[in-house]
């Protein structure tokens, strides 16, 4: 799989479905969780990552390698992140935010959170409920009351019959 060998130190990561990945230590320590293990000297063998599946871990490692190859240039890193996330579907994004949280990678987490929020932008309540399979637990009266609470002042939110 997405292995990068030949670098001075490589670590072996194991996903929760027992796939093995080797990754350069310099890239892997973007994850604070892994960095702490390295610093504590317990990254010698195989590092088991119990909360991340193989498909997601492969993605995260692609990201680690990609972003660590970019020198300290925030603009370029940002455009890499945007490009990296642009073709991910919602389920992948949700898996990635969980993985990023577990691995303690704040830059990836912020980017994925923003990307998920972007999916919801300018969408109607009904769209959000349908898309995410959320059950409406308001009674019609309660919903009307919440709507009346604050009348928002911006225009441009699409109506219920949108995409």
């Amino acid at each position: 799989m997405a292995a990068e060998t030949g670098t001075p130190t490589t670590l072996t990561l194991k996903s929760n479905d027992d796939e093995l990945f080797s990754v350069a230590e310099s890239a892997a320590i973007l994850s604070v969780t892994i960095r702490n293990m390295v610093e504590d000297g317990c990254a010698g063998g195989v590092i088991p990552l119990d909360n991340v599946d193989g498909k997601t871990l492969a993605s995260v490692i692609t990201y680690m390698n990609g972003i660590s190859a970019i020198p300290a240039d925030e603009e370029k890193k940002k455009s890499y992140r945007d490009k990296f996330l642009s073709d991910k579907d919602f389920e992948t994004l949700a898996d990635m935010v969980l993985a990023a949280n577990y691995l303690n990678m704040s830059c990836l987490m912020d980017a994925v959170s923003a990307k998920i929020a972007q999916v919801m932008e300018k969408k109607s309540v009904g769209w959000v409920r349908r898309k995410f399979g959320i059950e409406n637990d308001y009674t019609p009266e309660e919903e009307a009351a919440v709507k009346e609470e604050h009348k928002w002042t911006f225009e441009g939110v699409e109506t219920d019959d949108d995409n």
Partner: peptide, 27 residues
């Protein structure tokens, strides 16, 4: 998703989407 991750996602939404959309989604 754990609640704190949902919290981070909702924080990224613009205010108008929170008021017109998100707060009406569920309790």
């Amino acid at each position: 998703l754990p609640e704190e991750l949902l919290y981070d996602i909702l924080l990224e939404l613009p205010a108008e989407d929170i008021y017109k959309g998100a707060r009406l989604v569920c309790k």
